[in-house]
Design a protein around this nucleic acid. Structure first.
Lengths: 201, 201
DNA sequence: CATAGACTGGACTATAACGTCCAATTCGGA
DNA sequence: TCCGAATTGGACGTTATAGTCCAGTCTATG
């Protein structure tokens, strides 16, 4: 797949973005290849030309796009958790992101449609989780260095727990439509970070 | 559907259990009606006789079965969170249950295959969450009454957060195959319950 | 400007799965 | 025992959608 003219790359990109958008709007189950072709003004042969693996390969590519977007949507806050104020802003950002998405989670949706749990699909999510957790952990370490969080706390452990709080909150929102659990869990997680911190503050 | 002879009820039950089992073993995506028929030695007409709504209705019924099972698997601990020891045992029980399930969550799997998010499907999960949270909250209240948890803590809020911890931990396990996040989140949740409790203990 | 190979259109095939239908059989109460 | 209703078997119809194929057009490069 070395040769890829400018035109070809553009077409591939158009298909990918069109697929992602259609999935966001209608869900994976209600997204057929023909839907994507119609929306992007492309033909079957083009889709299979750029995604030889067909639907599966395309969905995986969409998953990667969505995974990247998850982290992007949390920037710049996620990358700069250097004060309690920043943590609070990040918290609000996360809640707002999922609230506005309103009971939709393209990534979760795509994942569940990928054959069983393809190794490739698992890898995409696992890597997302790793990166996400690493950024949170970095924030925890920074706060510890600044003497705002108890140095005895294990940053990775805390980050893992916080990440689970978010995932669970979002998952529950998928069914209930409410962000109450997400907020409760996040607040508890932040309270835990604050707890037992040096009394000097 | 008033008349339902013993034989009929047995057949219906056989189909339901066969479907649930097959889904647990192969996942929803790889479960066709024909698979279920073959496994349960029944015919198309029987399936549609007892589940006029077809696949959708059957999956919903399976979802209810699995939802019930989730809570049952946590008993008797979940219903008797009256000491720190009981809470710990419950924690271990939850972790063990999902560890043994090994990266499978029949309920989540079934849910994601139900048309978009059918109201009926949402109702099943929402009710499960409500019952689950209520049991946890009851435990919190009991501990408060016994003076083991800070009375200032909102039981429902805490239960909601704890529930999200579990959901998130399990969700992450679906991709990573590890229960580390589940354990970290649960431990953090329990630590939060203990925090700020009356110093008399 | 010529050519090889990338790119495109869209008709066509394959098939997997759900759901329908009806005739045959069994069941349970009167 | 007898009859209407419940139950059953399985062939058949229908549809939706992924994937194939090939002929025709465009593009980059020598």
């Amino acid at each position: 797949m070395r040769p890829l003219t400018r035109k070809g790359a553009a077409t591939r990109q158009r298909i990918l973005e069109g697929a992602a958008t259609h999935i966001r709007e209608h869900g994976v189950a209600d997204t057929t290849l023909d839907d994507i072709l119609a929306r992007t003004s492309t033909s079957k042969s083009q889709l299979f030309h750029y995604f030889p693996g067909g639907r599966e390969e395309l969905l995986l590519a969409v998953a990667r796009v969505e995974a990247d977007r998850v982290l992007e949507d949390q920037q710049p806050q996620l990358g700069d958790l250097t004060s309690w104020d920043a943590w609070e802003q990040w918290r609000d950002r996360v809640v707002e992101r999922y609230r506005s998405q309103g009971g939709q989670c393209p990534l979760n949706s795509v994942m569940s449609q990928l054959r069983g749990n393809t190794p490739g699909a698992q890898a995409v999510v696992t890597e997302l989780m790793n990166r996400w957790q690493a950024e949170i952990a970095a924030g925890v370490r920074h706060m510890q260095a600044a003497g705002q969080i108890d140095p005895g706390l294990d940053p990775d452990q805390a980050a893992a727990a916080l990440l689970a709080c978010i995932q669970g909150g979002v998952l529950i929102q998928l069914s209930t439509g409410r962000t109450t659990h997400l907020e409760a869990a996040l607040d508890m997680g932040l309270a835990h970070l604050r707890a037992g911190r040096p009394p000097s503050f």
